[in-house]
Design a protein around this nucleic acid. Structure first.
Lengths: 224, 224
DNA sequence: CAGCACGCTTGACTTCGGTTAACTTAGCTC
DNA sequence: GAGCTAAGTTAACCGAAGTCAAGCGTGCTG
């Protein structure tokens, strides 16, 4: 059974890969709040464990075993987040940290139980897909709202879960997963985006809009 | 914030004290499945942390700070156990291990939330009292069933939670906290105790009867 | 294409929690 | 009260995961 530390590294590699495509030593160091040498050393260890493939000075890549482990931890994380929100009444801005700790310490039975109690959900409170037990995950099709350039009707799919402050802001604006919004315009000189959310006009800085992920509205969602 | 390891030692000291009155190095080593030297070293550390007072070769005693820490961990443990059973539908013989891990990793907010969701309970599924947040605990008044010598009507208060097999046995017999039982007799030569539980006669080995804790029946419980 | 800067890795050391082996100490037995 | 035994402690060491300082490698820049 891998240590929490190993799990954190594997998860960070998975996320860096998903976010950037690349996985640099330094980036992992920043994500994990450790020094670069700590990362280098751990990479060797993970190589030996066959969780990554790693040619020194080149990048790092998860093996299938590493990916499965990453997805299992992420599954734990997202199921826990959703359970905390839906079953226990926590607010969506307060569950990330708790899940971050608990994800390393729950049993398979616990995982299965909350999955069952939640009715086999497919997304966490922030809209991220929940991996299956088998180690697969729905592909991401959404794009950052910040990249949308022309007015359009859009569906909020996900928001970044790591900044509680920002999550409260999104909630106050009504920008939450499953909400249909309309991008009206962007104010000049990299100014805020102007949106229509539930009939109200709201403004969102480009910074914040990077953390909101949207998709074109599908016909089945038209009734919103 | 103390490490899980420190918490485990403090909890073991508390329990050894409660069970035996004394706290020997060797006993802690057995309870924690570590070597005696590991205990010795940790005792020095806990002394420095002012969680215990420890004169070498003499026993060890929790300070008030140590006791508070022990009670906080035990509170976590018992609240988690109860939540797993009552809110999530786990069986009472399967929750000890899960609680053993999770007790070290939940936040104060989580602790408060389950306390609230459970309606500020006073006992875990095995009948052990739940310490308060302030670090107090209801005194134990029950005695091991194995020590009862004469026929009597008794109330099951607690059962030991550490052996899942035994818990299933107790459940099958109907010997659970809150159940009134009647001690009929003990068969000769340290034979099993004969009980009446819910109208049925059942037999319990002295070994098992050591793990059941009973009290005289109070008038308010007469209606059972 | 030489040189250099930056990023990555190696090396030497720390802390934490554990081990085994060797040695004290307390308390019991004669 | 001397001596032994069992329990407790100290010493030397290990592995995990981290640190800082120093040394490589890659690839961009002039």
């Amino acid at each position: 059974m891998p240590s929490p530390s190993v799990e954190d590294y594997i998860k960070a590699i998975y996320k860096a890969h998903a976010d950037n495509g690349s996985v640099a030593t330094q980036e992992l160091a920043e994500r994990l709040h450790v020094s670069a040498p700590a990362v280098s050393k751990m990479m060797r260890k993970l190589s030996v464990l066959k969780l990554i493939s790693h040619a020194p000075y080149q990048g790092v890549e998860l093996t299938r075993a590493g990916e499965k482990l990453a997805l299992e931890i992420i599954r734990h994380h997202r199921l826990i987040e959703l359970y905390l929100v839906q079953a226990m009444g926590f607010s969506w801005d307060s569950v990330h940290e708790e899940a971050e700790r608990l994800e390393h310490h729950i049993s398979e039975e616990f995982e299965d139980k909350i999955d069952e109690l939640l009715g086999h959900p497919t997304a966490c409170p922030h809209g991220d897909p929940i991996p299956t037990r088998a180690g697969t995950i729905a592909p991401i099709t959404d794009r950052p709202l910040a990249l949308e350039r022309s007015p359009a009707r859009l569906m909020v799919k996900r928001v970044s879960d790591e900044d509680a402050e920002l999550l409260r802001h999104f909630q106050a604006l009504g920008v939450t997963p499953g909400t249909a919004i309309e991008l009206v315009t962007q104010e000049p000189f990299e100014g805020p985006l102007v949106l229509k959310v539930g009939g109200k006009r709201v403004r969102l800085t480009p910074q914040a809009a990077k953390k909101v992920f949207v998709d074109a509205i599908t016909t089945s969602e038209e009734d919103k």
